[in-house]
Design a protein around this nucleic acid. Structure first.
Lengths: 228, 228
DNA sequence: CGATAGATTATGCGATCACAAAAAATCAGA
DNA sequence: TCTGATTTTTTGTGATCGCATAATCTATCG
């Protein structure tokens, strides 16, 4: 007799260490815990995570393959600083991919998906009214990817994910700050209308609204963001 | 005295092994040397390349991060098989990204770039007339990326590269074959007209032609490709 | 005090080892 | 000969070691 699972549910599919490290780092990036320009050395991280170098190296190289990290000439990994031109480039590419995904999401969004989407939209407006930036960003991510995941295109979804992996660390720069005048950007949100259009099956309108949403986020951050 | 370079020219910036392995594998993928469904084990590859496992592991994980390889449940890497739905998905996403890049390339293409583009277009038609599939695919890649590289958007270019990394291994299935009736697809090429439109500065028309090119390649492969 | 040479530390990189699980091969019995 | 169990091999994974270079610190001298 081997180590069979006595009950129906198997174990939580013990992931390899390098996978866990990757997820930790990815989450740390996307939640703004790492400052742009920060150097990430495998030994330091390994010591902090209580592993050896190897899993950390793997995770770092994967992140770098996705352009979430930059590699210095000597091989060190850093979270790239955000310049105006890079930000502009990334947002322009987002404007190509994300409205296209929204346009296709109408067919993939079933009733349950629309219900969930509306719930997230409510939480989103609530976070906006509460001036809770962290919750806003979290729900914003949740909202958009609930749409994109329904676009029926794994490859497009993957491209969008890599874009967010590059923009994410920068978006989080306001995380925890309270002295910014975010009321403007937080107030006007098209999310409710986007849901409405999706419910109506009007993907074109939803895509247009989403593009406006991205553009206004772009304008706001070009105004108020801290670039290098 | 250390290992200084006696002359002005330094070494060819000796790349780390894992980088060389990565390039080798990437090239092997894109030139159809690896059959879809093939399992790539780090030890076998390491033995073949004369290195240890580690650089190979790194390279494989980077490729997998870009979805150029799939990971089995036990961690083995395989070149994913191409299904009709996956191919359809990838080509649809190409249709989103690549015309957009072409549209933007008009501003980034200087005289020298246009000259080079026309040269590649000539080589492309020559390869088509010679029924030289390998040369055709090579120049086709060269042609398209000469355009995309001029789109001024590193992020969009990167997305397109990851898409090609996934489609490439499949496109090469005709490599070396001569008994297929490729005259149809090889004959009608929009490349010359694309160059002409780009020279005229009409990015919109170039994008439209490029979309047609992609669509017809898609139709051809859906008809004649070997899917799983 | 400041700059430079030397020493020390940090770091990327690659090889090797060990272990467990999976896959493959071999063998025994019907 | 076919099937099923057992052994052997393969393979992913992670840790440790050593080397060379880069970065940092220190100390000495002008």
């Amino acid at each position: 007799m081997s180590s069979q699972t006595p009950f129906g549910l198997g174990p939580i599919a013990a992931q390899p260490l390098h996978e866990q490290v990757y997820e930790r780092l990815r989450h740390a990036l996307m939640s703004g815990q790492i400052a742009p320009g920060r150097k990430l050395t495998s030994r330091k991280l390994a010591a902090e995570l209580g592993t050896s170098d190897m899993p950390v190296r793997s995770a770092l190289m994967r992140l770098q393959a996705l352009h979430a990290l930059d590699q210095l000439a000597n091989g060190s990994m850093i979270l790239p600083a955000m310049t105006r031109t890079r930000f502009s480039d990334l947002m322009t590419t987002r404007l190509i991919c994300e409205p296209a995904a929204a346009r296709r999401a109408v067919d993939g969004l079933d009733r349950a998906g629309l219900v969930k989407l509306r719930q997230v939209a409510v939480a989103l407006t609530a976070a906006a009214e509460d001036q809770d930036i962290d919750a806003y960003l979290l729900h914003n991510h949740d909202f958009k990817f609930s749409i994109y995941a329904a676009c029926g295109s794994p490859s497009l979804l993957f491209l969008i994910e890599t874009l967010w992996l590059q923009v994410g660390p920068f978006l989080r720069q306001f995380s925890g700050q309270f002295d910014n005048d975010l009321r403007g950007i937080l107030a006007l949100d098209y999310h409710d209308e986007i849901v409405r259009r999706l419910e109506e099956g009007d993907g074109e309108a939803a895509a247009g609204l989403l593009a406006r949403d991205i553009r206004e986020g772009y304008d706001f951050l070009m105004q108020n963001g801290q670039f290098e």
